[in-house]
Amino acid sequence: MRQDDLGAVILKKTDLASWVRGLLGSYRVVAPVREGDAPLRYRPLAVAEAMVLDGRRPLRAPKEHFIPQVEPLLAFRGSGKALTVQPAATGESGTVILGVRPCDARALGRLDDVFLGRKDTDTLYEGRRKATRLVGLACATPSWGCFCTSVGGSPAGTEGLDLLLTDLGDRYHVSLLSDAGRALMADTACEPSTESDAAAAQAQHAAAIDRMRVLFEAEAIGEKVEWDAPVWMRHARRCLACGACSFLCPTCHCFDIQDEVTADGGLRFRCWDTCQFGEFTRMAAGHNPRPSQVERLRQRVSHKFKYLVEEFGRMGCTGCGRCVEACPVNIDIRSVLTEIEGGER
C-alpha cells in the first residue's frame, strides 16, 4: 500500500501514449474518454489515443467502476427444490484507472468505510478495490463548483493514489506514491524529476489551491447541523427530487436490490438509489418518514457532514462540486453549509 513519498519521475507527453499502451498489455485501463457529444466519462480504453486528460474533471465519477449502476448479485434458475443459484464472481482482472482527480481518490476512501469497514465486507466491492490501481491527475483548473479545499482536500492531494501526475506543459511530473505505483512506471523510460520540475509542479498546485477560497470549517459543521433549522426549507423548497446530485456524487452509495424474474429463473441485482427520490423511504403501508424535500435535503447534508463523521470520523464529501454544477435548480451545498455555519448566505 502507501508509503511515504518514493520520489518522482518525468513522463514526457510524447511518451504518454506508449506508456498507456504498455499498461494496456497487462491491465484493463480505464480513463476519461469523450464519446461523441457526451460529457467526459471514465471508460475502459480500447486504444491509448482515446484518453482525454485535458479539461475539467469528468462529470461522472470513477465510483461506477467500483459500485456499478447495475450489478448482478446472483442468478437463479429452476424453481422449488430444483433451484440453482449462482452468485456473482468476486474476482476481478487487474485494472488501472488513469486521470483520477484527487477528490475522487479521496472519495473512494469514504466508500471503503462503508463497504469494507463493517463486520461484513462487501466482497464484490472488495474484489474491485484490491485489483485496481489509481493514477491521479492534479487539477490545474478547478471547475466552478469545486470546493475540495473547504473539506480538507486539495487539487493536488495524494490520498488514495498510487501515482499523481501534474501537467507541466510538455511533460508530466509523476509523484510515486506506492510500490504499486512505482511498478506501473517501471518499464517506461522516464527521467528522474529535477528540482525545477518539482518546483514547477508545486507552483501549479499552489495556483490551483489559490483559485478556491476556503468557505467554511467543515470539521466543525457536523455539530452545528440542527434538525429544525430554517436552512432546510429555504434551500429545499425548490428541489425537484431528482437524483442528479447523488448519482454524480463520488461518495454517495445507496442502492436498491431488485429481482428480475421470468417463469423459470431470474437475476438479482443491485442498482443505484438515492435518498432524494420520494420513494426512497416510503414504507409498504404508504407511510413516508421523509415526506418532502425538506426532510430529504436535511438527510443528505446530515448524512454527509454529521452521521458519517459520527460513525467513521470522516465526512462523506470531498468537495468535487459535481452536485453543485448538476443541480437543475442550483441548490449549492456550499451555500447550505455556509449558512449552517452561521456565515452569510
Binding site: R60, Q69, C242, A244, W272, T274, F277, E279, P328
Partner: peptide, 28 residues
C-alpha cells in the same frame, strides 16, 4: 441507443418537466 446508454436514470428530465406530475410514475 448510444444516447440512452449513458442515462443514469436520475429522472432530472422528468422532475424538471411541468407536464410530468404523476404521483406515481410508470417507472416506480
Amino acid at each position: 441507443r448510444a444516447q440512452v446508454e449513458r442515462c443514469l436514470r436520475c429522472y432530472a428530465c422528468r422532475e424538471a418537466c411541468p407536464a410530468c406530475y404523476c404521483r406515481t410514475c410508470f417507472v416506480d
